[in-house]
Amino acid sequence: MLDVGFSELLVFGIIALLVLGPEKLPEAIRSAAKWYSKFKRVINNVQNDIDRELRLSELRDQMQKEMQRIEELEQKMQTQMQELQQQSALAAEKEKQTTATESHSTCPSYHYVQFTVPAGYLPLAWLKKITHSHQELYQLPSELQNTLQLKVAV
């Protein structure tokens, strides 16, 4: 800290001995040492606080940089997710279109027509068997017991 050599300390000690005398010199040295140690502790605490603040500011800067990097990555991922969703939607539309065109071109379309067949057209034994099995599963209304409903493909 201070560039004080041995010769300067010797001169300072001789002056202190002449001014204070031999009785008060040891007490003055003790009090000077106490003040010096207190001063040194304060200086060390200030230096440690400054170093800690510098490290904290560096950490804050690093954290901000990392947060910016994370935000950029998040934006990139969101755009990629949107692109993937659009691609999957387009693929689903294309698949629907291809299946619709394939089904219209390869398979004949059937239109289902619902109508009732009078009981007189069906054999009586078969009709009794069918209506009996239906009655076991659920109770048929009285008007439906004599007729059956069939779906016929046209």
Rank of each mutant, 00 (worst) to 15 (best):
R69D: 00
E95L: 15
L10S: 04
S133W: 05
M1I: 12
D49V: 12
L9V: 08
K94M: 01
E136T: 08
L122I: 10
I14E: 14
R55Q: 10
Q114R: 08
V113R: 10
Q78D: 06
D49C: 10
L2W: 12
G13M: 15
K129C: 10
P26S: 00
A33K: 14
Q64A: 02
Q135D: 13
I43G: 14
S88E: 15
I50R: 02
A33S: 14
E93D: 07
Q85I: 12
E72F: 14
K34N: 13
K76V: 01
S142H: 15
P118E: 02
V19G: 05
K65T: 09
N44T: 07
G21D: 00
T99Y: 11
M63E: 07
R60V: 07
K128C: 04
A100M: 12
V117E: 00
A92P: 04
F12D: 13
L17F: 09
L84K: 14
E102M: 14
A89V: 03
L25S: 00
T106E: 06
I29T: 08
K94P: 02
Q64M: 10
K34A: 11
T99V: 13
E136G: 05
A125F: 13
M77D: 06
L144D: 02
A100C: 06
M81C: 14
E74G: 10
I50A: 00
L73G: 05
R69A: 00
V152T: 09
V152N: 04
P141R: 00
T79A: 08
T131I: 11
V4P: 03
F6L: 11
L59K: 15
S57D: 03
S142A: 09
Y112P: 05
